[in-house]
Simulated scan of single mutants.
Amino acid sequence: MANPWWLYMIECRGGGIYTGIAIDVDERFKTHVAGKGAKYTKMNPPLRIIARQRFPDRRSAAQAEYAMKRLTPLEKRQWAFTMNGGIVMGARRSVEESLESICPKSAAGAPVLPGGPGA
C-alpha cells in the first residue's frame, strides 16, 4: 500500500497562508524553513503548520489543494480551526484568542463575519 499524502497549511510571516501537499509534512516544513521550498515561502518565511489532513493518494490530495487554494484567507483559517478541534496548531492560545485570529473585530469590537456588516 502506498504512503498517504497530506494537505497542509503553513502560516507565514506577515499573516499569509501557504497551502501544499506532501508525504511527510514535517520534513516539507523544514525544507520551507530552510528557504528551499516554494517561492512563496522564500519571500514569506514560514512560522508554523496550522493544519494538515490525510488523503489516501497524491491525486486526492492535489484535488483538495486545488480547492483549498480557491478559498479566501478567512475561509482557510476557519477550515484550519475546525480541523484542529478549535485549537490553533503550534500556538498556546485561548479559544477566544484563536477565534480573534480567524475572525477579526471591527473598530467597535464586534466580530466581522464573512458577508456581514463591516466585511
Rank of each mutant, 00 (worst) to 15 (best):
G109R: 04
N84P: 04
K39Q: 10
P56Q: 09
M89A: 15
Y8K: 05
A107I: 12
L47Q: 14
G15S: 03
A22H: 03
A51N: 11
G118W: 01
P46F: 03
S60C: 09
M89Q: 14
M43I: 07
A34I: 00
P117M: 07
Q63D: 14
L7W: 05
A2H: 07
G90R: 01
A34C: 00
I21W: 04
A110D: 15
G118L: 07
T72K: 14
P73D: 01
P45G: 02
L99I: 06
M68V: 11
F81Q: 07
P111A: 05
I102W: 05
M83E: 14
R58V: 00
L47V: 14
D26V: 11
F29D: 07
A64H: 12
N3C: 03
L99E: 01
F55A: 01
P56E: 09
A64N: 11
G116E: 14
K105M: 07
G86Q: 03
F29C: 10
S98G: 15
A61H: 12
P117T: 12
A62C: 06
K30R: 13
G118F: 04
N44L: 02
R58F: 11
A119S: 15
K42E: 10
G116H: 12
D26C: 08
A22T: 07
R70H: 10
T72F: 10
P46K: 04
A80S: 15
T41H: 04
K69G: 08
P73S: 03
M83V: 12
I49P: 02
A34G: 08
A110Y: 10
L47P: 01
M1W: 00
E75M: 10
S98A: 15
G16M: 03
V33E: 12
G15R: 03
P46I: 06
